[in-house]
Amino acid sequence: MENGDFISVNYVGKYDNGTIFDTSLIDVAKEAGLYDVNSSRTYEPLSFVVGKRQLIRWF
């Protein structure tokens, strides 16, 4: 990876205790109880440009 590269990643966000709070994977969302059939949310990879500071630092 280099600055300026456009990439897409799947992710699972967890608290220190292991509780999942967000994900790009629908199966993980369903298993964690995050999926809401009535939501307009789409589960897809997160896309960004490397080096453009489009994400929070720890990601």
Rank of each mutant, 00 (worst) to 15 (best):
K30P: 03
I26V: 13
W58V: 10
E44D: 06
G18N: 05
P45M: 00
G33P: 02
V37L: 04
L55Q: 04
S8Q: 07
Y43R: 00
S40N: 12
S39K: 00
E31G: 02
G4H: 01
I20F: 04
R53P: 05
D5N: 03
Y15K: 13
E44L: 03
G4D: 04
L34M: 13
G4M: 08
Y35I: 06
K30A: 00
S47L: 10
L25I: 14
V12C: 11
F21M: 08
F48G: 14
L34T: 00
S8M: 06
T19P: 07
F6G: 09
V50K: 09
Y15M: 15
V50L: 12
N38H: 11
T23P: 03
V37S: 14
N38L: 14
T19D: 07
N3A: 14
V28S: 11
I20T: 11
K52G: 01
V37E: 15
F6I: 06
D36E: 00
I7G: 02
A32V: 03
V49T: 13
T42Q: 10
S40D: 14
N10F: 07
T19C: 09
D27G: 10
R41W: 02
N10L: 10
N3S: 12
R57H: 15
G4N: 08
E2L: 11
V49H: 08
V28G: 04
R57M: 14
Y15N: 15
D27M: 11
D36R: 05
N10V: 00
R57I: 15
F59H: 12
S40P: 01
D16N: 07
S24K: 04
D27F: 12
E31H: 06
R53L: 12
F6A: 09
T42E: 11
F48I: 14
D22N: 13
D27T: 11
S24T: 02
L55A: 06
A29I: 09
F59W: 12
M1Q: 03
E2I: 10
L34R: 02
A29V: 12
P45C: 03
P45A: 00
D5A: 13
V37A: 15
D36H: 05
G18K: 10
